[in-house]
Design a protein around this nucleic acid. Structure first.
Lengths: 187, 187
DNA sequence: TCACATCTTGACCCATGAGTCAAACTTTGT
DNA sequence: ACAAAGTTTGACTCATGGGTCAAGATGTGA
C-alpha cells in the first residue's frame, strides 16, 4: 500500500536528516542511517537511487515542513508582532527539534546543479516568509532597517546558529528580542 | 634550518585551511592537500602525526592570526567606533581572504577532547575581543542591549556567514551598520 | 669529498563506505 | 491456497583515503 510506503520513506528521510545534521554531508554514511532504522543498507537503495538523492530529499523534506509551520502562523497584526512570532517559532523548532540543522543546509560547493537548485528553491521559499514581513514593516515605517537584504541575512544567521548556545525558554526570548533590534527604530 | 621548516609548516597549514573551508572536515583528504602543495601525502606525515593533528593545527593557526589582526586595531575611542571597526575588519577578512571559513570552525561533534579544547580556547579568545567592547558600551550606557550573550552570538553568526552573500565594499558597509543596530539605543 | 641530518618519495596495507544483485521473505488480492 | 507484487537481506565489488615505511634525494658542515 502507498500509505505504508510513504511512511517508510518519511522515516528514512527523518533519520537521514538527523544524522546529516550531526555530521555533515561527507560525514554521513548510509550504513549508519540503515542501522538506526534497523534495516540494511540495501533496503535504502530500494527507495532511493543514490546517497545524493536520499540526502537531497531529506533536506528538502525537513526544510519544507519547517517552512510550512512558519507559514501557518497568523498573518495579521502589526509587523513587529508577526516578526516576533516568526522568530520565536523558528528558534523553538531549531532548538527543540532540530538542534543539528545548522550543518544540514550547508550544502557542499561541488554538488551537481539539480540538487543545488532544489535546495536553493527551498531557501528561497523560507526567505520569502520573513522578507514579506520585513518589507511591510519597512514600507509602513514601523521598522527602520539599513537595508532589507543584510537584515534578512543576519536574521537567518542568528536563528540558524541558535542551537549552538541557546537552551532555555528564557534564552529563546532573549535571542528573539535581540534579533528584533535589527528592525527597531533608532533613537 | 628551522626557518625553512617553519615556512613549510605554514604553507601546509594555509593550504589545509583553504580546503577545509571548502569541503568541511570529512570532505578533506590529505591527498588533495598534498597535491595542491606539489608534494606527496607521505611528506605531510613528516610534519604532522595524523589528519586530526594537521586539521586542528590549521584551524588554530588561521584563527590565531585572525584574532591577532582584530586585537591590533586601536583600542581607544567611543565603543561604537571601536565596534564598527572590529565588525568591518572581521567581515573584510572573511569576505576577501577566507570566504570559506564558515565550515572551518564548525568542528565535528565526535572529536577527541584535546582537539575540541584547542578550538574552544581559540573561540574564547576571539569572543573576548568583541565582548570587551560590547560590555564597555553597555556599562557606559552608549549601547542598549537585550543581553550581552545573545548580542555577541548574533554578531558572530552574522559575521561568519557574511561571505555567503556579501561581495562588494558597499555590502560590507551595509552589513556592518546592520549589525551595529544590535547595540543601538532604541527610540 | 665524505658523513650526517633533513626531507621526499612511491609503493604498499587496510578499513571504510557507495553501490549491486540474486535469492529469500512478506504482503496482498483472488 | 496460490501467485504476483512488494520488500528485505547479506554477500559481493570497487574506489577512496588514512597511515606506514624503506629507499632515495637533497642539503649542510668539516
Amino acid at each position: 500500500m502507498a500509505r505504508k510506503r510513504g511512511e517508510r520513506v518519511r522515516a528514512i528521510l527523518a533519520t537521514a536528516a538527523d544524522l546529516l545534521g550531526e555530521r555533515g554531508y561527507a560525514g554521513v554514511n548510509l550504513e549508519d542511517v540503515a542501522e538506526r532504522l534497523d534495516v540494511t543498507k540495501g533496503s535504502l537503495y530500494y527507495y532511493f537511487a543514490s546517497k545524493d538523492e536520499l540526502v537531497t530529499a531529506a533536506i528538502e523534506a525537513l526544510g519544507a515542513e519547517w517552512t510550512d509551520r512558519l507559514e501557518a502562523l497568523p498573518a495579521h497584526g502589526p509587523p513587529t508582532e508577526r516578526l516576533r512570532a516568526l522568530l520565536r517559532e523558528h528558534i523553538r523548532i531549531a532548538v527543540r527539534e532540530h538542534p543539528a540543522a545548522l550543518r544540514l543546509f550547508l550544502v557542499p560547493d561541488e554538488w551537481p546543479e539539480p540538487q543545488r537548485d532544489r535546495i536553493k528553491a527551498l531557501r528561497h521559499r523560507h526567505d520569502a516568509v520573513f522578507r514579506a514581513v520585513v518589507e511591510e514593516g519597512a514600507r509602513t515605517g514601523e521598522f527602520a532597517v539599513v537595508a532589507v537584504d543584510p537584515t534578512l541575512q543576519v536574521l537567518h544567521a542568528g536563528m540558524s546558529q541558535a542551537p549552538l548556545w541557546v537552551r532555555t525558554d528564557r534564552e529563546i526570548e532573549q535571542l528573539t528580542e535581540t534579533l528584533l533590534k535589527l528592525v527597531a527604530a533608532t533613537a
